[in-house]
Design a binder for these strands. Sequence first.
DNA 1: AACAAACTTGATATCGTTTTCAGATAAGGC
DNA 2: GCCTTATCTGAAAACGATATCAAGTTTGTT
Lengths: 342, 342
Amino acid sequence: MTSRAGVNSRNPTISDVAERAGVSVPTVSRVLTGAARVSPAKREAVEAAIAELNFRPSAAARVLVSRRPQTIAVVAGNTSRYGYAETIRGIEMAARAEGYTVMITVVESADEVEVDRAIGATLSQALAGVVVLKFDPPGVAALRRLSTDLPVVALSGTRETGVRQAVLDETGAAEELTDYLLGLGHRTVHHVRVPPSRRVDGRTTGWRRALLKAGAPVPPLLDGTWAPNSGIAIGRVLAEDPEVTAVFCGNDELAMGVMRGIADKGLRIPADISVAGFDDHPLAELWSPPLTTVEQDFEGLGRRGFELLLQVVEGSGGRRFSSELPRLVVRESTAAPRGRGT
Amino acid sequence: MTSRAGVNSRNPTISDVAERAGVSVPTVSRVLTGAARVSPAKREAVEAAIAELNFRPSAAARVLVSRRPQTIAVVAGNTSRYGYAETIRGIEMAARAEGYTVMITVVESADEVEVDRAIGATLSQALAGVVVLKFDPPGVAALRRLSTDLPVVALSGTRETGVRQAVLDETGAAEELTDYLLGLGHRTVHHVRVPPSRRVDGRTTGWRRALLKAGAPVPPLLDGTWAPNSGIAIGRVLAEDPEVTAVFCGNDELAMGVMRGIADKGLRIPADISVAGFDDHPLAELWSPPLTTVEQDFEGLGRRGFELLLQVVEGSGGRRFSSELPRLVVRESTAAPRGRGT
DNA sequence: AACAAACTTGATATCGTTTTCAGATAAGGC
DNA sequence: GCCTTATCTGAAAACGATATCAAGTTTGTT
């Protein structure tokens, strides 16, 4: 009884279904799309034929004539780092729930030629829209190269005009975190930043704003990379400077590296130096000591980004911005200063 | 001079290009595909027209008639956990280098109906093939539901017949790791496993094999989850059993949780208990103490999977398996036993 | 110079759907 | 019962590319 694909036949088409159900092709199409009414008898016959043949409409043929693509593209500079991966997951879940299919495009360099090559194949797909992770220079470059006649939503940590975007307000969160550290009694807070997406980044801006607001000295910026162990060397340097009592790192991985570098020099955290991260990585709470950080809802960012895109696609206009303030999570890696610096 | 998309025109089509270049549509197609020779004069005219109009061939129209899709789908139970994300990255990079576009499909449950719903939209795309991450029950279920007339490659940790697959030989690596721990002088090794993809999983099998080979007692299995902090409770339980001197955890995150649980009970690692993980997570080397683990080349797994798929797609038959042995990485979380158990 | 072979080129068919339009049938109003 | 309106249905066109095939043009050989 189990029906089986014909011996050597290709995938069944809508006309196979029509023939089997004894109706015309457009009638099958109407059943598929629900675009118009079909008599109950024919509808049942069509549905039976579809099931028997295990028929799936060809998305390519469908989009060609309907001009309503059900695919979106995600353009990102990276797919596997924590924040990126979670954001993509949020987009994918929201998209899948709405019947959209998701295409991934990685852009590794910010060079214009490279970017065009990376997004070329993707842009020749029929797309309903694009979500760009504007977290880094490649993301920023990709956004700039995206043609304007395609709905585009950018996801990032800093609000910016001219683009429809969903935002996790890093600036505000970094300011809050720095306020908290100053409030513990630290004279100032050092900052190790991750590679910024543009000349300025929100985490650094918020940090500086809090220092200025409090009249605290603004120490020179330290630059980490995306590799967690780049923090080790920086931690060692910081450990040797007796002025350093609190360090705010651009992300949790970097903070973990910095903590190791500090520990390598025999200093204790938080007794000698407080260290805070950013993102609330799943391992932050397991670290020793557990890491004070800022919880960012990346998955929610992805969802909000897709929803924003969908509003454009469906023509319902909608808001151009969607912003959210990450939440400070205080753990044991930060404390009031004692013994050092003060 | 900069050309601009026509005032209110849609995307340019191949016939816009043909008209502008003063040639026929098939000639433009020949320039695009390189399928046949075109005189230099016309080729130049066509290329100029393409550039001026900023023309991109429609992938949908192209695949409809050519029947050579340039898209692959990745089906996975998860996209953001370390091993998954890295594997997907490897697939994406290899695919992009070959001009293939990548579609992501997440399958959250192993339930047949759920699986079909998740992969439905994807399977109606024109696909060259599918790569399935067979790391967990949803992945296994998805693989089973994939129609056989589509090229499919499975990625996993255990070799299995009947499917074309790329493998990271977890069984062998787990055996090697357990051998190493026994070689340090531990009477036996306890194992905390991550949720297995099927009834048996490679890491557990390799662990048991090593114990039996050495004539060591096989302690009862402990079950962790994918959440790193599920290890904490397990670590506390293990700490209270004086027989426990070495623990092998199914992945690094779980090991970190277990270590915390053990530390919570006042025991030291590795002095009192040795702990080893699996995967070589980027943070494993930063952990205190740095974690002994097994380095898995997930990105390479993804690449190999895509290459295997490509061989099928291009009809060059090729091998059905591609296997690789992960590499033991000894760090400071493991040492010879002393004081306890022996 | 004549013929064959090779190379270019365009007209037309084709892929698998949805859309448009018009015809057929059924239902409703007088 | 006749005309209008509403409901279903199918024929044909359309989407934007490649594939096929035959005609036209060169080139090469004798």
